[in-house]
Nucleic acid binder design. Structure first.
Lengths: 229, 229
DNA sequence: CTCGTAATGCGACTTGAGTCGCATTACGAT
DNA sequence: ATCGTAATGCGACTCAAGTCGCATTACGAG
């Protein structure tokens, strides 16, 4: 039981090797590519180490040695995927920005071509500790990146100072992921809009200000942040 | 091979059998109990058919025949769990009711004794189609039941007519499940409160009214919905 | 009570995931 | 260019999950 909120310890599935350049790097790239392709084709249940070994041309034993199994393969693929940033909207209006974000999530996951890969990847990641850690890191990075739309809104005076931007993003996207990965309910564009609007509304009301950040903001002579009742 | 009339039906998991009373029912109850116990102890990854067979005293082959595997065991356990209703708050105030609900979710899943079982159950259910269907049914029932707090708020005049009660409940609980089952971020009581408050706020603003339902509510105060074509 | 039938018990069999020890290859330094 | 070493290739081995055909038991109807 660790109550630490500071997961500074992000360790990649394989230890930094004394021979990082050359073949090892090539092998890793091939394996990640093969893993993503396999997941996209067969989903997680159809994902086997042997299939990845065959497709990548890397021997089965090597995969088990370096990645430990399907868990590690998925975790590493997820880590590699996390590096690719996605476009961040900047319309000048918080609600519009959030709508763009939820719309983007909706589009990706419901697209019959694009959707299966991240869907299977996320489902797969929930099964193992390594995958869960990679998934946590993935979303932490996403939240941190997307929090900028809220921070800009704060700078504009649209949101109270001390607003937790990542929390705003979570509030906007949570209903989508909730349907996709928990209840299995259908997801439509209207739901994506409503979620964004609800998050914007709550953020404007000051629901996502952390007490600590609010105090810091009070010290500054700029904005008064009345705690919404 | 003629045999045109060969009504050989595939035995579906726990389909209504021609002999529902007696031993079959007892076997099923034992298996469900054993499955829940195993899941609680070892999580999903440690859940094997053999272990359930040993604990329940039912032979392995029987489990595979009737439940098809770990998937079916989990799905059936989930279905059995869905029958147990949980307490619905009625404080006379929507925000308070929603806070109670999110607080309940928070308590259950973070409790070191109670949490592991539903957590593992939900995680497990996401893996198979049967489990996903059972999970979907489970949450549909929960939403339907909990929607009453919103419907009472409508009756009180606290919420606009035509508000989708289930959607209000989803908005309140989604951030919790999002953290628990998608991002793996820690969950605290404050988050549970904020989610409830945000949902209440959005509901009061009329964000969860479906245009259709609102029109119907306007047209006739009677809640009867005509069916037919 | 007796009997027909469905459900379960039983154990051998098949299959594939995962491991191990050793041979071979390729990187990087001298 | 050559060599030491780490990483990969290789195939046999272990073991548990899952399947199959048959024997046995228990339910329910007459």
């Amino acid at each position: 039981m660790s109550g630490a909120n500071h997961p500074e310890q992000e360790r990649q599935p394989y230890a930094p090797t004394p021979r990082p350049g050359g073949r090892s790097a090539r092998v890793r790239a091939d394996v990640v590519t093969a893993t993503l392709a396999e997941v996209a084709e067969k989903g997680y249940d159809g994902l086997t180490v042997e299939a990845v070994a065959t497709r990548s041309g890397v021997h089965k034993a090597t995969l088990y040695r370096r990645w430990g199994g399907v868990d590690g393969l998925v975790a590493d693929a997820l880590t590699a995927s996390a590096d690719q940033p996605w476009p961040l909207p900047d319309t000048g209006d918080l609600r519009q920005d959030l709508r763009r974000i939820t719309q983007e999530v909706f589009s990706v996951f419901t697209d019959p071509d694009l959707g299966p890969t991240p869907t299977a990847l996320i489902s797969a990641a929930q099964r193992s500790d390594a995958g869960a850690a990679a998934l946590h890191a993935f979303f932490t990075a996403r939240h941190r990146q997307a929090a900028e739309v809220a921070e800009r809104a704060v700078a504009r005076g649209e949101l109270p100072a001390g607003t937790d931007g990542a929390e705003v993003v979570r509030a906007a996207t949570a209903p989508l992921y909730y349907r996709l990965f928990v209840t299995g309910e259908p997801l439509d564009a209207r739901t994506a809009e409503r979620a964004a609007d609800a998050a914007a509304l709550a953020a404007r009301a000051g629901l996502f200000t952390s007490a600590l950040a609010a105090e810091e903001a009070h010290a500054k002579p700029n904005t008064t942040t009345p705690q919404g009742n």
